[in-house]
Design a protein around this nucleic acid. Structure first.
Lengths: 165, 165
DNA sequence: CCCGATTAGTTACAATTGTAACCATTATAC
DNA sequence: GTATAATGGTTACAATTGTAACTAATCGGG
């Protein structure tokens, strides 16, 4: 039964629930590609992705771009430093902040995992026709914009939990 | 840029990431409606929803229908029993299992929270045209089916984490 | 300048959650 | 029938995660 014509809260058809199940299923699948194999947690993987594309970011910048909170970023960066996948130096213009970049080991790791993630994404949307993919893109953008606009349903906004991929 | 034409893993456009952010944003909004106000955790809320629609389920049945694992269900049911929102009796035909049902307090609570959740869902999809809602429904079904079919990306399947709404 | 307010980042502690081991009961195989 | 496996459910322990408090550095207004 489509989302728009129900009147009772049937969990199976409830849009937030369906999104949650879908997202968790997909995230678990991708996480399988790096968790045990490379000992990489999801927050670490997300930091890696951001730094692969744009190096020299501060932790705060990483937090903003990944929608993770700063404590999660701090922990992930700490682990990545310990495993020598990320390098850090203090920024000259603001000694509170640091500039983060992948080490060569970090880049190698990213180069191993990223293709898998992209391939998975392609296989995931493989059954969708081209115009469906465009529609999906638009629907997700609309829904996210709407969810942000609606806000926390009448109470002070809470930082979003760290997404799993 | 649509999901289908990228070649590098740009987190902001990566479908699994976008689904995760969207799902977490929505879940956080709805959770705000019951967390502090009624001291209800998300697993508890989900058990409540299932039992409101179909009473006399066993915990294992609840687990199956909510896509939560049995430990999470056990804990949620335990809390709901302590707060007298759920009643439990041992099933006569199989003394391992129990039959769960909402107490009147549980039903009252559900009657308070459910309308909010449904209203939120309606407001969320309000900007979507009728045919977009149908398409969304279809796309989510297709993607979930595909994600399940693709499975855990080449390794033994792990129980999905408990969704947040 | 210089003092309060803000921001970057870390640490400590509490709460949640996952994993594994476990008991009781029922189904299955011989 | 009895041994063995499988299932429902709980508990204990470890690992993750959220929250709050904290230090250090910069910003802003007098």
């Amino acid at each position: 039964m489509p989302t728009s014509v129900r009147t009772a809260l049937q969990l199976e058809g409830f849009l937030p629930y369906r999104l949650s199940v879908l997202s968790n299923t997909i995230s678990a699948a991708i996480a399988g590609a790096y968790q045990q194999r490379f000992g990489l947690s999801t927050p670490q993987w997300r930091v890696l992705c951001i730094l692969a594309l744009t190096p020299e970011l501060s932790a705060a910048e990483v937090a903003r771009r990944t929608a993770m909170d700063k404590v999660a970023v701090s922990r992930a960066v700490g682990a990545l430093l310990r495993s020598h996948r990320v390098q850090r130096r203090t920024a000259s213009h603001d000694r509170r902040t640091s500039a983060l970049r992948l080490s060569s080991a970090g880049r190698r790791l990213y180069a191993q995992v990223a293709p898998f993630a992209l391939t998975y994404e392609q296989e995931l949307i493989e059954p969708l026709a081209a115009h469906d993919r465009l529609t999906l893109d638009r629907l997700l953008r609309t829904l996210l914009g709407r969810a942000i606009a609606l806000g926390p349903a009448g109470r002070p906004h809470r930082a979003a939990v760290a997404p799993r991929v």
